[in-house]
């Protein structure tokens, strides 16, 4: 195994973890409110730009800028749910899909307009640009992104196992009517789901922004997340993590094929072939609930 392949595998795990995090945020919305959010990538983009802007404009420490971003994303998530998604409850699935697609176009062009199309680097956060782990040169930001991803996953696990809000959300996902009759406000659950999802996506966006610089390319994460969540099962949070890891690895293996065999753009396109394949063989994914319905 040569060093290049090893490097790609490490990259695959790191990127895969991020796909997993975004996938979890996506699944959270789907489980709670049965909305497929095509604007997930724009949450990353908005979070990254807001954080970048507060840091460069006011020259405050990273932690404060990050906190401001989180508060902003919380408000934005609740606002989108209340203003845009709430009137569409009970509408056919095409309307719900289209409204999130419309939001995604709107936000993407708005951000392009405000911040331009060129990638903007984040201010330096770490003193040492890279460190050595097991003989491999790994950038500090990659290590940070790894830690952040694991921390978010652990927080999700705790939230849904132990916290009251998390339990209420699981109950709502399981049976809305029963949850409502037990005194859970379904409206609050929906709004909370969107707020948490927006915040978690923003964290992922900031991490990717620190690594690669902030640009509209970030929003492609929102599309790459589909292969990951379909592979894992659309309504499984663990599935999103596993699916994200697999897709991240697959993508970087495809990059190896690109360089070795000169097949062109396999890195970009391989996850979508995987997606079609999964839908053919196992449409409910590795961990998803199997709806039995035959005609």
């Amino acid at each position: 195994m040569d060093a290049f392949l090893l490097q790609l595998l490490v990259n695959g795990v790191i990127v895969g973890m991020l796909y997993g995090v975004v996938g979890m945020a996506f699944v959270l919305i789907y489980k709670a409110s049965q909305v497929v959010n095509f604007a997930q990538g724009e949450f990353l983009l908005i979070g990254a730009w807001v954080c970048w802007w507060t840091l460069t404009e006011f020259d405050i420490p990273f932690v404060f800028g990050f906190l401001i971003t989180l508060v902003f994303m919380f408000v934005l998530g609740v606002l989108i749910q209340v203003v845009v998604l709430r009137p569409l409850i009970g509408e056919p699935i095409i309307s719900v899909i289209m409204v999130t697609i419309g939001l995604s176009i709107f936000f993407q062009s708005l951000l392009n307009w405000m911040f331009g199309v060129f990638a903007q680097p984040f201010p330096r956060i770490f003193e040492t640009p890279s460190m050595e782990i097991f003989g491999l040169q790994v950038q500090t930001v990659y290590v940070m992104s790894m830690f952040v991803s694991v921390a978010i996953m652990a927080a999700f696990a705790w939230f849904f196992k132990a916290s009251k809000t998390g339990l209420a959300m699981r109950a709502t996902a399981f049976d809305q009517q029963a949850a409502q009759s037990l005194g859970i406000s379904v409206r609050h659950v929906f709004a909370t789901a969107w707020a948490i999802s927006a915040m978690v996506s923003a964290v992922a966006g900031v991490v990717v922004g620190v690594v690669n610089g902030v640009s509209s390319a970030l929003s492609f994460f929102g599309i790459k997340v589909f292969p990951a969540v379909i592979l894992g099962g659309l309504d499984s949070i663990i599935g999103a993590v596993v699916g994200g890891l697999i897709i991240g690895l697959l993508e970087n293996l495809a990059a190896y094929v690109d360089v070795d065999l000169q097949w062109g753009n396999m890195q970009r396109i391989a996850p979508f072939y995987a997606l079609i394949l999964i839908l053919m063989i196992k449409p409910y994914g590795l961990f998803g609930t199997r709806d039995i319905e035959r005609v």
Binding site: G102, S104, I105, F106, S109, N112
Partner: peptide, 27 residues
């Protein structure tokens, strides 16, 4: 708003906004 250079973005924004507004107010 720097409209002249942002006209392409303005067009795309209008498309997105039109889709969202129609779905909410005139489904």
């Amino acid at each position: 708003l720097n409209l002249q250079s942002g006209i392409n973005n303005l067009r795309e924004m209008a498309i997105g906004a039109a889709i969202v507004l129609f779905l909410i107010f005139e489904p």
